[in-house]
Structures are given as C-alpha cells and as structure tokens.
Amino acid sequence: MFGTMKRGVNAYANVGLETGVAAASPHKLVVMLYDGVMVALLGAISNIKSGNIAAKGNAISKAITIIDNGLRASLDKKAGGDIAENLDSLYDYMSRRLLEANIKNDAAIVTEVHSLMSDLREAWVAIGDQPAPPPAAATAMPKTATLVSV
C-alpha cells in the first residue's frame, strides 16, 4: 500500500542531499564533490576485489563523471591562473588513470587516485577553515576612532 521501506528511505536520503546541496556554500559544494568521488572510488576498489565487474565499472564511471563534470567544469581558469590550470591537468590525469584502472581491473590505480583526491580534499577543507582577510579599508582604523572597553 505504501511502497517498500527501501524506496521511502531512499526518498528521505535524496531530500536530505538536495537540502544539503541547496544550503551549501560554493566551498562546501566542492567538498561534497570530493566526497562523492572518494566514495565512488572506495566502491570501485571493493567491487574489483569481490569480482563484481559491472558494479566496478559503474563506480569508476561515477567517479570520472564527478571529476570531469563537477570538479573540472567548476574551475575558473581566468581567475584561478596557474593553480586552476594545474588542477585541470591533475583532474585530467586522474580521469585517464581511472579509465586505465577500469580496463585493467586494477585496484592499485584506483587507490592512487583515491590518495590524490584525499590530499586535495584535505587542502580544500583547510582553505575553508581559514578566515577571509578583512578588506584593506576595514583594517585601517580612522585616527579619530577610540576603543571603548566594557
């Protein structure tokens, strides 16, 4: 009458994900993309080890899609300069390595890409923890201003 429990749980999870995406800052969205790639890569490794070729292929395809259509597509090469160019090259390398891992059924290659993603995610999260520097005008206090302590 009400459908399966699994379908209800999946619908609830999708609402939670959509709400998280809608409320996330651009910085948090990139972290979510890194997390999605890393989960897909762990699934690929698990499926390679268990011999589930179809699921391995799906997991690797999902990781490549997130890398190419999420992370690479979000790079602003004009504003990001050399950093954005280097990230683009690294994302391209990872996608190519994942294609090779899929063809060779090689968990070591997937682990390599997972390690690279983990390092990038850590760096990205650390950047987000840094407070933005105040604008130059806000740091200069007018000479007539006085500080009052309470």
Rank of each mutant, 00 (worst) to 15 (best):
D129L: 09
V15S: 14
G128N: 13
L41S: 01
M1G: 10
I66V: 10
L98K: 01
A145G: 10
S149H: 06
S61V: 01
G3P: 02
T139M: 15
K28W: 01
I109T: 12
L98Y: 00
L120W: 08
R7P: 03
I109V: 10
D106G: 01
M1D: 06
I103E: 13
P142S: 11
L71K: 05
I48L: 08
N102W: 00
D82W: 04
K143N: 12
S118P: 14
R96F: 04
K77T: 12
A13H: 03
I60A: 02
N58K: 11
L90S: 06
G81Y: 07
S115V: 04
K62G: 08
V30Q: 10
A22W: 07
I64K: 15
S74K: 13
A55E: 11
A13I: 07
H114K: 15
V15W: 05
S25N: 09
A44H: 01
G57I: 03
P133F: 10
A126I: 02
E112A: 00
I127S: 15
K62C: 05
A22P: 15
L17F: 08
I127F: 13
G3H: 02
K104T: 09
D88V: 08
M141N: 09
L147E: 11
I67V: 13
S46P: 06
Q130W: 04
K62D: 11
N102G: 02
A123H: 14
K143M: 04
A126N: 12
A22I: 06
G8S: 09
R96T: 03
V9F: 14
T139C: 14
V21C: 07
S61A: 09
G81N: 12
K56N: 08
A84K: 06
F2S: 10
A137H: 11
V113P: 07
S74C: 13
K104C: 10
P131L: 01
I103Y: 09
N14I: 04
V37S: 02
L90Y: 06
S89K: 15
V110M: 07
I66Y: 01
